[in-house]
Simulated scan of single mutants.
Amino acid sequence: MTPSPPRKLLDVVREVIRLKHYSYRTEQSYLDWIRRYLRYHNGKHPRDMGKPEIQAFLTHLAVEGHVAASTQNQALSALLFLYRNVLEIKIEGISEFARAKRPKRLPTVLTKSEVQAVMQHLTGVERLVIQLLYGSGLRLSEALNLRVKDVDFAQNQLIIRDTKGNEDRVTPLPNTIQVTLKGHLEAVRRVHQQDLGRGYGSVYLPYALAKKYPNADRSWIWQYIFPSYALSQDPRSGVTRRHHLSESSIQKALKKAVQRSEVSKRVSCHTFRHSFATHLLQNGYDIRTVQELLGHKDVKTTMIYTHVLNRGGYAVRSPLDD
């Protein structure tokens, strides 16, 4: 009997990632970093390398690649996954490498009038998404991953699931947008019914849920609130279904709106989450409440927004104003 050819390393990595139910984005990111690591060491097999080679690669990223600290940490996570979960090799004490510097920057925050100025140049679904980022303090990925069942009109709240810290949290659903959101959901439901009639209508569910509830993927409550305008093939399963809107479509619409509004600040989707937190603090809400609404594990992360309460310049009165 002819022995089967050895499996390629990246194919094994991909299989382990999927067994652990990591997101598709994480899968693509980890595979890319592992490729870059192998390329940097001229294709040498990772079993023949270890801590020194990992440290050399991470140092290269910081010193020659000038990557951000978060990017360097992502590369380290990918390599630790490779060694610990795929090759089953213990790698301990990786600390002796050049660290990418974390820039100490205050978040960009819009005034309430600037928020409205940008909103005036947004329409339709894109406006509704940005309203949720500001009105509920969501990350863009959280807004786009919302399912029908996550909206609680009776309690005026949204339930944010599978967050960055893998913990669910609750955040307010603005009264201002509820009529618009209900109308939007009616339109989404009609599209879903049409998809079902054409033999489609399924939506992606995490593996554990798909196994536990085999027919839930076609259920209305599991559908995305902001579905894509077109059906597409799932890159993992090959199933044709309707995913949620892409982040880039919202980002492009926002960029145009900011240009038209003439707001002279560097504005991204995350700016509205920053503005949500800042405006709550200005309105007198305590830091712990804001921490919970944002889903921060450590209150130190939330403390960065308190700079606005100092009214600029550490509350020092300029001598020019005397």
Rank of each mutant, 00 (worst) to 15 (best):
I287P: 01
H270C: 12
F272M: 04
I250C: 02
I250S: 00
I287R: 13
K255D: 14
R273M: 11
G295I: 01
H244A: 12
F276S: 01
Q259Y: 04
K297V: 08
V299A: 13
S249R: 09
R273N: 04
S275N: 11
E262F: 03
L293R: 01
D286A: 07
Q291K: 14
A277N: 10
F276I: 07
K255H: 10
Q259G: 06
R242T: 03
H243W: 03
S249M: 05
K255V: 04
S249V: 14
V263A: 04
V258R: 00
T302L: 08
S264P: 06
K256V: 12
S248R: 11
T278H: 05
Y285A: 14
A253E: 02
K252D: 13
H279Y: 08
F272P: 00
S248D: 05
S268F: 15
S246K: 08
K265T: 13
R241C: 02
H270S: 13
V263L: 03
A257R: 01
S249L: 05
G284V: 11
R266P: 02
K255G: 11
S248E: 08
V263I: 08
Q291L: 06
Q251H: 03
S275K: 08
H243F: 12
S248Y: 11
R273Y: 12
S261C: 06
H274L: 11
V299C: 08
V290S: 01
T302Q: 05
S264F: 09
L280E: 04
D298F: 03
T271N: 06
S246Y: 12
S246H: 14
K265E: 15
D286H: 09
L281I: 08
V258Y: 00
V299Q: 07
L293N: 01
R242N: 05
T301P: 07
S261D: 05
R260A: 15
H243K: 12
L280R: 03
H274C: 07
E247D: 15
H270Y: 14
T301D: 06
T278F: 05
V267D: 00
R241F: 03
H279G: 04
T289L: 08
S249T: 10
G295T: 02
K297T: 09
K265N: 15
V267F: 02
I287G: 05
D286M: 10
H243D: 15
G284N: 07
H274Y: 11
H270D: 09
T271V: 14
D286L: 11
Q282I: 09
V290G: 01
Q282C: 08
F276C: 03
K256G: 10
V290C: 04
D298T: 06
V290A: 01
D298E: 10
A253Q: 02
S248L: 11
Y285P: 04
H279V: 07
F276P: 00
R288Q: 12
F272K: 00
L294F: 10
L294P: 00
H296I: 07
T302V: 12
K255Q: 15
H274T: 14
K252L: 12
Q251W: 04
A253D: 03
Y285E: 12
A257Q: 02
